[in-house]
Design a protein around this nucleic acid. Structure first.
Ligand code: FES
Ligand code: FES
Lengths: 142, 142
DNA sequence: TAAATAAAAGATATTTTTGTCTTTTATTTA
DNA sequence: TAAATAAAAGACAAAAATATCTTTTATTTA
């Protein structure tokens, strides 16, 4: 569904959002540990998210990553990392999905695609702060 | 959503099913042309599908690929090629998606996943024969 | 100002996916 | 049986995704 990069990005943002909510900035090592991601790879992803404005960072002692806008949708994150293929691309990989030139599964796929978009559009990275803080959901395996 | 391999597999099966319905066996070159796929790569995929019984082949003159069972579901094709990650895997890439140890988006994702499965389970490779024969849907771009 | 801290950037490496080429085997028909 | 046809198999190649390592830059605090 999502690329590995995108999975790490979402998990990292959810974690950082929760930590920011609790008043903490976090370093990428700590984030990598919290979401079980490879450190240098995650660092790259965080840099990218920061450049794109989905995340903020501060250098120096007491620095780290933090979230300023809790109302960024998961859809925005997916779009930033994976592009909008998931939201408008053809299910069978054909170019230019359209009503006038549909592939066999176009109608059915279109509706599924809309469901996915709805799900991602209606959740923000701040929506899960409490669940995460209370330990009711996980961001890593172990 | 699906891997490129899986996209080619579905498009190829839909094409072969329609041709079989019309009484024709087809060679992999013709299939590659019909669905706009790289010939040798497609040949590999067809071999794999044949080994797995989703497709039949005949060697020699007047040979080619053909479909014996029109009632194979698209879900079975996806499962054969991409495995069942799409049907039971975690949306955030965590191992062992489960109710008791859910990730933040588990509930929402579970329902989307079920939608996808329903769509793929309720369509068979023979369901589109007429639409394809009438040229009402496409299997390639140009 | 010096030292410590932490992110940013750049170069490099590995793995997986996707795509290609050549040889072999099986089948049919003349 | 010989020739033609077509898939099967195996080795190989390129591209993209994923992951790692090292150096640089900015910031804070003592
Ligand atoms: S054309 Fe394939 S999903 Fe729209
Ligand atoms: S645990 Fe993530 S979708 Fe179920």
């Amino acid at each position: 569904m999502f690329s590995k990069t995108c999975e790490y990005a979402i998990r990292a943002l959810l974690y950082i959002a929760q930590q920011s909510d609790a008043g903490h900035k976090v370093g990428f090592r700590q984030i990598a540990q919290a979401i079980d991601a490879p450190e240098p790879f995650l660092a790259k992803i965080l840099q990218d998210l920061t450049r794109k404005g989905l995340l903020q960072s501060a250098k120096g002692p007491n620095g780290g990553f933090f979230v300023a806008a809790m109302d960024i949708s998961l859809a925005a994150v997916v779009r930033a990392i994976d592009g909008d293929k998931l939201f408008s691309g053809c299910g069978l990989g054909l170019p230019n999905c359209s009503e006038t030139n549909p592939c066999p599964i176009h109608q059915q796929f279109k509706s599924v695609r809309a469901q996915i978009q709805k799900m991602l559009q209606s959740s923000t990275i701040g929506d899960f702060n409490d669940l995460i803080a209370q330990g009711l959901v996980r961001l890593k395996s172990a």
